[in-house]
């Protein structure tokens, strides 16, 4: 692939633009912005990754991961602003999941300790953790709202905050992890995963690509469940005060 061929691929941007214009879909502006942003962002990342790979310096790897976590926190916290201390709770969650996954991968020599492996895998793990956090926070705040009576009932009968929040918490953890588990059930049948397809296109041995893809699938399963569980258990205590009274976000 070179820049000339890449320029030719812009045909795939022109097709929806033409359709949008013809059918008055109103997608032209957003499509152009999305295209320009993706070109700039990915090319910038490409050059940065090239620099980090060449530098072979762990400081740059650390810096890249810190930036990823920072961006993920910034994005996910918008969905949980009503939960006290959500920023540091997200930081703890993302750092924990990163340390856990890289600790296992590097500790057991499953992947080499080079930027070429650490950064892309970290990106996938943190990115998925961010999406899971958003799904979890969305569901958790709506569960708290819809099950307020039930939560107070359990408190009124002498239950602890942990017992009172058990059902909304478990329902939110299940709801946020189900899409990951369900998509993994049909993987390879409906569509080939992006990373595996990319490797095959780049000339890698398909079996090797499959093995790496399986590694990522297993990683993402851990990421999904651990993210929801950690975020849930970090979040629920802030919903109660020291008198074990429910202090719902946004309510006085």
């Amino acid at each position: 692939m070179n820049f000339v061929l890449l320029a030719l691929s812009l045909i795939f941007v022109i097709i929806p633009l033409v359709l949008s214009k013809t059918l008055n879909l109103g997608l032209e502006k957003d499509s152009v912005i999305a295209t320009i942003r993706s070109i700039i962002q990915l090319l910038a990342v490409g050059y940065i990754l090239q620099f980090v790979f060449d530098a072979e310096n762990y400081f740059y790897i650390f810096l890249m991961i810190a930036l990823m976590i920072g961006a993920a926190v910034q994005n996910a916290r918008k969905k949980g602003v009503s939960i006290k201390g959500i920023t540091w709770k997200l930081v703890v969650t993302f750092v924990f999941i990163e340390v856990l996954t890289q600790g296992i991968l590097l500790g057991l020599n499953i992947t080499p300790a080079t930027a070429q492996y650490i950064i892309p895998i970290s990106g996938m793990v943190i990115g998925n953790s961010m999406v899971l956090s958003i799904l979890f926070l969305n569901r958790f705040t709506s569960e708290l709202d819809s099950r307020e009576d039930e939560t107070e009932l359990i408190l009124s009968l002498g239950g602890t905050p942990k017992q009172a929040i058990h059902r909304p918490l478990i329902a939110s953890i299940q709801a946020s992890t189900i899409p990951t588990i369900e998509s993994q059930k049909t993987i390879g049948l409906v569509q080939l995963p992006g990373m595996m397809s990319g490797q095959i296109i780049a000339g890698a041995d398909p079996l090797q690509a499959v093995m790496f893809q399986l590694l990522i699938i297993f990683l993402l399963l851990t990421t999904a469940v651990v993210t929801s569980v950690i975020l849930g258990f970090l979040s629920y205590p802030t919903l109660f005060n020291e008198r074990m009274q429910l202090v719902l976000p946004g309510k006085k």
Binding site: D149, L155, G159, M244, Q245
Partner: peptide, 30 residues
């Protein structure tokens, strides 16, 4: 202690909220 207080002073609200499950399960909840 809040838990002891709520067992000493019981409350039944107008909404009569039930958790999903049988009558026996709801009765045994406390």
């Amino acid at each position: 202690d809040p838990v002891q207080l709520r067992r000493k002073v019981g409350i039944a609200l107008q909404s009569a909220t039930m958790v999903s499950g049988t009558v026996r399960y709801n009765l045994a909840l406390p």
